[in-house]
Amino acid sequence: MKFNIGTIDRILRLVLGLILIVLAASDTIGWWGWLGLVAVATALFRFCPLYAVLGIHTCPLNSRD
């Protein structure tokens, strides 16, 4: 799998995803806060399927497997 998420993008996804998960777990926001799991997963795998479809890559090393 080729990486398409760069370092800054990865950090932002991880932080915002974790914030959403914590807010959802504490019932501060609704069920949609659990969508933060998607952001965390894409940050961990460094691959975003939507970026692949749209041809976007923020990773300078996108040719690595």
Rank of each mutant, 00 (worst) to 15 (best):
M1K: 11
M1Y: 10
M1G: 13
K2L: 07
K2G: 03
F3D: 02
F3P: 02
F3T: 09
F3S: 10
N4S: 12
N4Y: 10
G6Y: 08
G6N: 10
T7N: 13
D9N: 14
R10P: 02
I11Y: 07
I11K: 11
L12R: 13
R13T: 03
R13N: 06
L16R: 10
L16C: 15
L16S: 15
G17L: 07
L18C: 15
I19C: 10
I19N: 06
I21W: 01
V22E: 05
L23H: 02
L23D: 01
L23S: 06
A24S: 11
A25Q: 07
A25C: 08
A25F: 04
S26V: 13
T28D: 00
T28H: 04
I29N: 00
I29Y: 00
I29K: 00
G30F: 00
G30A: 02
W31F: 04
W31S: 06
G33C: 07
W34K: 01
W34C: 02
W34A: 05
G36H: 03
G36T: 08
G36A: 06
L37W: 00
V38S: 09
A39Q: 04
V40N: 06
V40Q: 03
A41R: 01
T42M: 10
A43M: 07
A43T: 04
A43C: 05
L44W: 05
F45T: 15
F45L: 14
R46Q: 14
R46S: 13
R46E: 11
F47W: 05
C48Y: 02
P49E: 09
P49A: 09
P49T: 07
L50E: 01
A52K: 12
A52C: 01
V53D: 09
V53M: 11
V53Y: 07
L54C: 08
G55R: 04
G55P: 07
G55I: 09
G55Q: 08
I56N: 05
H57P: 00
H57V: 11
T58G: 13
C59E: 15
N62D: 11
N62I: 04
S63W: 09
S63F: 10
D65G: 10
D65C: 03
D65A: 10
D65H: 10
